[in-house]
Design a protein around this nucleic acid. Structure first.
Lengths: 190, 190
DNA sequence: ACACCCATGTAACATGTTACATGATTCT
DNA sequence: AGAATCATGTAACATGTTACATGGGTGT
């Protein structure tokens, strides 16, 4: 799975600009595949060269021309091929869990700080996803897949939040036991 | 968070080779941060140049010399700085969920195929993690952090598996048909 | 006044993956 | 006989991020 294939999905039913594409990413699959302008625009250029899309330039006053991209027959074929190809394995990266693994080297209160930091970020993300869900519910175009994708994102975040809250509920420092750990810990406090 | 910082964590308490490092990754944080030889060896070279590690070359017969890497004082400082730095946000990539989002374009039975493919991969990953957990429990060196990191990985996978099974149950023709599928199911129930 | 929206894009950088390249030893 | 383990590394490729560059319109 790469950014080109996901873009094909978005423009499969509706032509749009790179700017609009970014919005579509953000309000749908961003939780499972993020995209930035610097990823989208070069991808669109490659895709045009490969014949997967056609560009229509619409001049505007006071701002750059709109580049409306439309999927071609070749693009539809390419998207269908993607759907038939083997799933690429999921990837996850979590700085929190990596640090947690090395918890014995953490200073006092440090783990708690990480947990709180992650909790705040996740709470914000959850707010954003709930907001999108409300938007999706008010949009007659929304189908069950969009809704359930959002809901899976929300459920995952809430799962992680529960873990974080359980960890926080443990007494601060309760994880650290034994003199060895404490010695190691001091070394990292400098 | 990058590979150098995680390597520092592994060699913080014990010198080892690049080969051993790979094993440590695989049996601990691989679920939250993967590493390959092609990532590890160049990283070690950079780290030596930066003065974060020292290399001790131990010649061997019939195979390449061991390059045992040991953390330096500068390396310890660098690791401590990492632990104090802001958490990098978690990243997730899921081809399954992206495709699911575009489910309206899928052919008949195609979504089911994706769900089954992902379930099989996840079931295998779960087996691997459970195996590591048993290994960790038999290892007197294991601390609570290592164990709980593994357990969080297992819990996440089981969370995803539950979602997949719910989706499979909803689909038309929900009964698992072939003998293969039935075997898979038994494995999950055990 | 200030911030956010619209709308495009490039260049440098960071990071990681796949394939290539070698080869003895030990287990099944 | 064949697979897995030990043990190193390079080169080419893919992919994505951050900072840079521009600039009017719209809402508070």
């Amino acid at each position: 799975m790469n950014i080109e294939q996901v873009i094909l999905g978005f423009i499969y039913g509706e032509a749009m600009t790179g700017y609009e594409l970014k919005k579509r990413f953000d309000e749908s699959v961003a939780h499972f595949f993020g995209a930035t302008f610097s990823g989208i625009y070069p991808a669109l250029r490659r895709m045009e060269k490969e014949g997967l899309i056609e560009k229509e330039v619409v001049p505007q006053e006071g701002r750059p021309s709109k580049n409306i991209v439309r999927i071609t027959e070749k693009g539809r074929q390419s998207f269908a091929d993607y759907l038939k190809s083997p799933l690429s394995p999921g990837v996850q990266k979590s700085d929190l869990l990596v640090r947690y693994f090395f918890g014995r080297y953490a200073a006092e209160g440090q783990i708690r700080g990480w947990l709180l930091e992650e909790r705040e970020r996740m709470t914000d993300t959850r707010e954003g996803l709930l907001h999108m869900r409300r938007g999706a519910l008010n949009d007659p175009e929304t189908d069950a897949f969009r809704l359930k994708t959002l809901e899976m994102g929300i459920a995952q975040i809430e799962f992680s939040l529960r873990w974080i809250d359980e960890e926080l509920a443990m007494e601060p420092g309760a994880e650290l036991t034994g003199p060895e750990s404490r010695e190691e810990r001091r070394r990292c406090e400098s």
